[in-house]
C-alpha cells in the first residue's frame, strides 16, 4: 500500500491566497492541482512536502481556453480532457490536440491539469515539448506582481522549473501566427505510458519557404525540450525531403537519451530523427492546407 508521508493540508480560495500561503509556509509547501503528477511522487515518497496547498477551488478562475488579441491563453487549471476537447486548440494548435490524445489515458486526463504537468517538469512530459515547439510563454504570479517567460526557459532541469517557491504559474500564452501548422509524434509502449521518445514540430510558411519553426523533443535528454539546431536547418528553406531529413538528423544529434526499460539509447535517438521528420512533414501539410 502506497501512502504519502504526513503533511498539513490547506485549501486556497484565490490565486492571491495560494501565493500568500506559499509565502507563509515556505519552500516545503507545494501546490497541488489535479495531483496526477505530484501524488504518485508522494506515494512513492520521492516527494514529501510538509504542506500541500490544494488549488482545485481555483478551477473557476484558472480553467479556460480563450483567444485574446493575436494569442490563445490557457489557464493553468485547464484539465487535459478540456484541452483535448477545445475547438480553439484544434483550430490553431493541432500539436496540442495530437499530444493530448496520447497523454496518459482518458480517466487521468479528466483530472490532471496542464499547469501541474509542466510544473512537475518530468523530463518525459509531453506538453513541455509541445509548448517549446510552439514557442509559448508562461505567466508566473507572485506576491509582488507577475512575469512572462518563455516556456523554454521554464524548465531548469529534471523536476526543476523557474517558478520560485512563492510563485505560481497561472497561464500559458501562445501566439496565433498566420500560415502556420503543427504536429506531434510519440512512440509509447502502451496506452498511458510515458514516451519512449516524442517530437513536436511547428512551422510558419511563407509561400514555399519555412519562415519560422519550432522543434520540441521529450524523453530524449534535451535541455529545455527543444532543438534550435533543427529549427535552424528548416528556417529560410523549402521543406523538401532533404531539408526535413537534415532537420531530423540535427534534432537527433543533440539528444542524450538514457538507456532504460523503455529502450536503448540508440533506439531512442533513431526515434528522435524519424519522429521529428514525421512531425515536420505533417506540420507543413497542415500549414499549407490552411493557406
Amino acid at each position: 500500500m502506497q501512502t504519502p508521508r504526513s503533511f498539513e493540508y490547506e485549501r486556497a480560495t484565490s490565486v492571491d491566497h495560494a501565493i500568500a500561503l506559499l509565502e507563509r509556509l515556505g519552500p516545503e509547501a507545494r501546490l497541488v492541482a489535479g495531483g496526477h503528477s505530484l501524488l504518485p511522487m508522494m506515494k512513492l515518497r520521492l516527494a514529501a512536502p510538509e504542506h500541500l496547498i490544494d488549488i482545485n477551488p481555483l478551477v473557476a478562475d484558472l480553467s479556460y481556453v480563450r483567444v485574446e488579441g493575436n494569442e490563445v491563453r490557457i489557464g493553468a487549471m485547464t484539465r487535459h480532457a478540456e484541452l483535448l476537447a477545445s475547438p480553439i486548440i484544434a483550430e490553431h494548435f493541432a500539436i496540442l490536440t495530437d499530444a493530448e490524445k496520447v497523454i496518459a489515458d482518458p480517466i487521468v486526463r479528466n483530472r490532471g491539469t496542464i499547469g501541474g504537468s509542466i510544473c512537475q517538469a518530468d523530463p518525459s512530459e509531453d506538453l513541455s515539448a509541445a509548448f517549446a515547439a510552439l514557442k509559448a510563454s508562461v505567466l508566473i504570479r507572485s506576491g509582488t506582481g507577475e512575469r512572462l517567460i518563455s516556456a523554454r526557459d521554464l524548465h531548469v532541469g529534471p523536476y526543476e522549473t523557474a517558478v520560485g517557491p512563492a510563485e505560481m504559474l497561472t497561464e500559458v500564452r501562445i501566439a496565433i501566427r498566420a500560415g502556420s501548422g503543427s504536429a506531434y509524434e510519440k512512440v509509447e509502449r502502451r496506452v498511458g505510458d510515458w514516451a519512449v521518445a516524442a517530437s513536436g514540430a511547428w512551422v510558419q510558411m511563407s509561400g514555399d519557404t519555412v519562415a519560422d519553426a519550432g522543434i520540441g523533443l521529450t524523453a530524449l535528454g534535451v535541455a529545455h525540450f527543444c532543438s534550435p539546431e533543427a529549427e535552424a536547418v528548416l528556417i529560410g528553406h523549402a521543406p523538401t525531403a532533404e531539408v526535413i531529413a537534415a532537420a531530423g538528423a540535427a534534432a537527433a544529434s543533440i539528444t542524450n537519451p538514457p538507456t532504460d526499460q523503455r529502450g536503448p539509447s540508440d533506439y531512442k535517438r533513431h526515434l528522435a530523427d524519424i519522429l521529428t521528420q514525421r512531425a515536420i512533414t505533417r506540420a507543413v501539410a497542415r500549414a499549407l492546407g490552411r493557406n
Binding site: 493540508y9 495531483g35 496526477h36 501524488l39 490544494d54 480517466i107 487521468v108 479528466n110 483530472r111
Partner: peptide
C-alpha cells in the same frame, strides 16, 4: 474509478480531503 462530481477519476490518485 469513481465519479467525482460526475466525472470519472482514479480514486487512488485523489485525496479524500479533495
Amino acid at each position: 474509478v469513481v465519479w467525482l462530481d460526475d466525472v470519472p477519476v482514479k480514486s487512488c490518485t485523489v485525496l479524500a480531503v479533495m
